[in-house]
C-alpha cells in the first residue's frame, strides 16, 4: 500500500467506526431496531480486503456486516436508512442490517445466519471461474463461530475440490455471543483446519493493516492463478457486546481489563500512529479526516431521519421477479 492508499484506508476505517458508534447510540434510543452487531475494533480486516479488491471481485458478509457494507463503498445514507427501516434504505427497509445487498460494490449480502455466506461464496466462485472464466476472486468473511458450522466445512471442501477462487477470512474475535472461542473450537488456531482441506492456511494479526495486506496478497495471487481457495484467520476482538443491548459485556462474561487491553491494540490508532511516524500526514490532516468522517455520518443520520417509511403496498411487492 502506498501512502495515499494508507490514508484512504485510515479514513475508511474511521468512517466505519464512527458510523457504527452512531448506530449504537441510535439503537439505544430505539431508532434502530432488532439486532445490531457491531464491527468496532475489527475494521482493519474488512477494510484492507476492500482496498485490495479489483474490479469484478466479490464478497459475502455476515451478521456483523454493517462495517463491511460501509467499508465496501456503499453510500452511508442508504445504510443508515436501512437500519432505520426506511423506504430509502439499501434494501428498501425490508432487509435490515443483516440483509443488505449492494451488487455495484460486490456485496453479495450481509447474512442473518452464521456461516450463511460460505456456500454462497462458492457459488460466486463458480460464476467467476467455471462459467465466466475470469481470474476474479471472492472474499468470504466468517467468524470463528461460523467455522464450526457444517456448511462451512462442506463449502471449504467444495471450494478446494473445484479450486474455486474463494478467500475464506475467519474474523476470530474471541466470542460467540457469550461463549468463548476456547470453549467452542477444537483448536486454538482455526487456520490449522486448512490442512484438512488441503488448502493454504495462515494466522494473521487482524488489527494490523500491513500484516493483513501481506496475507491477502498471497491468497489473492493464489486464487487468481487458478490454484483455489485459502483460509486466513485474522485474530481480533469484539469491543462491543454481541449486540448493543448486551449488558454483560463487562463484568458478566469478560472483564473490563480484557476489553481495555484490546482497545489499546485498536487497528485505527495503530494505523494513525504509523501514518504520523512515516510522515504520510500531519496531526492536523488526521483531524481534518476525523471531522470529514463525522460530517458524513451526521449527514447519513439526517438522511435517514428525513426519509419516509416504506409504503404499505411494499409488503406484498418483490416476492418474485
Amino acid at each position: 500500500m502506498n501512502p495515499k492508499e494508507i490514508l484512504g484506508l485510515y479514513e475508511n476505517m474511521l468512517l466505519s467506526r464512527r458510523f457504527e458508534q452512531k448506530a449504537d447510540e441510535l439503537y439505544k434510543e430505539g431508532l434502530v431496531t432488532g439486532s445490531l452487531h457491531l464491527y468496532i475494533g475489527e475494521e482493519a480486516i474488512g477494510a484492507v480486503a476492500m482496498l485490495m479488491r479489483e474490479e469484478g471481485d466479490l464478497f459475502t458478509s455476515t451478521h456483523r456486516g454493517v462495517g463491511h457494507t460501509v467499508l465496501c463503498g456503499c453510500d452511508p445514507n442508504l445504510i443508515m436508512a436501512e437500519l432505520f427501516g426506511k423506504a430509502t434504505g439499501i434494501s428498501g427497509g425490508k432487509g435490515g442490517s443483516m440483509h443488505m445487498f449492494d451488487q455495484a460494490h460486490g456485496l453479495l449480502g450481509t447474512n442473518g445466519i452464521v456461516g450463511g455466506g460460505t456456500s454462497l461464496a462458492c457459488g460466486a466462485g463458480i460464476t467467476l471461474k467455471l462459467v465466466n472464466h475470469t481470474d476474479r476472486v471472492v472474499f468470504c468473511f466468517l467468524g470463528e463461530g461460523a467455522s464450526n458450522e457444517g456448511v462451512t466445512h462442506e463449502s471449504m471442501n467444495l471450494a478446494a475440490v473445484w479450486k474455486l477462487p474463494v478467500i475464506f477470512v475467519v474474523e476470530n474475535n474471541g466470542y460467540e455471543v457469550f461463549t468463548t472461542a476456547q470453549e467452542s473450537c477444537s483448536v486454538e488456531d482455526i487456520a490449522v483446519r486448512a490442512a484438512g482441506y488441503g488448502i493454504p492456511g495462515a494466522v494473521v494479526d487482524g488489527n494490523d493493516a500491513l500484516k493483513l495486506e501481506k496475507a491477502y496478497r498471497k491468497a489473492i495471487d493464489h486464487a487468481r492463478r487458478g490454484e483455489g481457495p485459502s483460509l486466513i484467520e485474522a485474530k481480533t476482538y469484539r469491543w462491543s457486546g454481541h449486540w448493543p443491548g448486551d449488558a454483560y459485556s463487562y463484568g458478566g462474561y469478560r472483564s473490563k481489563e480484557e476489553v481495555d487491553e484490546w482497545k489499546a491494540r485498536c487497528p485505527i490508532l495503530r494505523l494513525g500512529k504509523l501514518i504520523l511516524e512515516k510522515g504520510y500526514a500531519t496531526g492536523e490532516e488526521l483531524d481534518a479526516i476525523s471531522r470529514r468522517v463525522d460530517r458524513r455520518v451526521e449527514e447519513s443520520v439526517a438522511f435517514a431521519m428525513a426519509s419516509p417509511d416504506p409504503d404499505d403496498g411494499g409488503l406484498l411487492q418483490n416476492l418474485f421477479a
Binding site: S119, L120, I126, T127, E154, S155
Partner: peptide, 14 residues
C-alpha cells in the same frame, strides 16, 4: 448444504 447454497451464490452472480 454447500451445493444447494452454491447454486444460490451462482444464481445471484448472474
Amino acid at each position: 448444504a454447500a451445493f444447494v447454497g452454491a447454486g444460490m451464490g451462482a444464481a445471484i452472480t448472474g
